[in-house]
């Protein structure tokens, strides 16, 4: 089943066309890689899908709902959640509170509940904390749940960013460079984490520059260049594609 369907999507900023009429579909349960040189329009594509920037023209459909034109919080509510390229956390919150804040959609917030502190509210808050700790165990941050987010090393902050997104209980998770700035060890853990996320039934789409990560992890890869899709297919197909080698890797490159 197609989860995310993009038809003729164009994103223009003034005179610059960052995405120039692309079509794409992401299947349920797949890990899709989105690669391309700097400025190819990858992050813009994520910004369009998550509602951060309004779509210039074209349609984005997610699980049967048209999401182009919706606000980020409405898209998150439908089950499409993203992370950001540069670490974005609630920095002064503790780790577990970060994830609880991410759990907003499923925490049954109500003003009167907060004010009267009803039994239902207290139970919902306890459940939310419980859920947050489970998610932290899942991403491997369970034992540092009570530290302040800003005190964590980079790799852990990245993982926490994903934990926050998972707390919103997405059907499709968009990861913007999950392995940026990581050493080999941290990258391997991140690859493992993304696989485990997919195994829980969440489709994943990710932007990544590290070829080892992309080739090893993704079921299918889409290559963008200057706002157009120049290739799409399995890692092996993309690796052999002449235009990809030309545009992205340099014509002489030997990709492993």
């Amino acid at each position: 089943m197609k989860q995310l369907e993009i038809k003729n999507l164009t994103m223009a900023f003034g005179g610059i066309t960052a995405i120039d009429g692309i079509d794409m579909a992401v299947e349920e349960g797949e890990i899709r890689g989105l690669i391309g040189p700097n400025g190819a329009g990858k992050t813009t594509f994520f910004n369009a899908c998550s509602g951060r920037y309004p779509v210039t023209s074209g349609d984005i459909t997610f699980r049967g709902h048209q999401i182009s034109g919706l606000k980020p919080h409405e898209i998150a509510r439908l089950g499409l959640v993203r992370t950001f390229q540069h670490v974005t956390l609630f920095k002064s919150f503790s780790v577990v509170k970060n994830v609880m804040a991410g759990n907003y959609l499923h925490a049954q917030h109500s003003y009167f509940g907060s004010l009267l502190r009803t039994r239902k509210t207290r139970r919902a808050e306890a459940d939310s904390e419980q859920r947050a700790r489970e998610i932290l165990d899942f991403v491997g941050l369970g034992d540092i749940a009570d530290k302040t987010a800003s005190s964590l090393p980079h790799g852990h902050q990245k993982a926490l960013g994903i934990a926050i997104a998972l707390a919103a209980e997405p059907q499709l998770l968009l990861l913007d460079e999950p392995c940026a700035g990581m050493n080999n060890d941290e990258s391997r853990q991140m690859i493992n984490l993304v696989r485990r996320i997919r195994d829980t039934g969440v489709s994943v789409m990710l932007i990544e520059h590290d070829m080892k990560v992309v080739m090893g992890l993704c079921d299918k890869i889409t290559v963008l260049n200057f706002g157009n899709i120049i290739a799409e297919g399995t890692p092996a197909e993309v690796r052999e594609h002449p235009e990809v080698r030309e545009a992205y890797l340099g014509s002489q490159a030997n990709v492993t």
Binding site: R82, L89, A101, Y104
Partner: peptide
């Protein structure tokens, strides 16, 4: 972090 709050719904 207003942006992140927005993207968590």
């Amino acid at each position: 972090n207003e942006l992140l709050a927005q993207h968590t719904g």
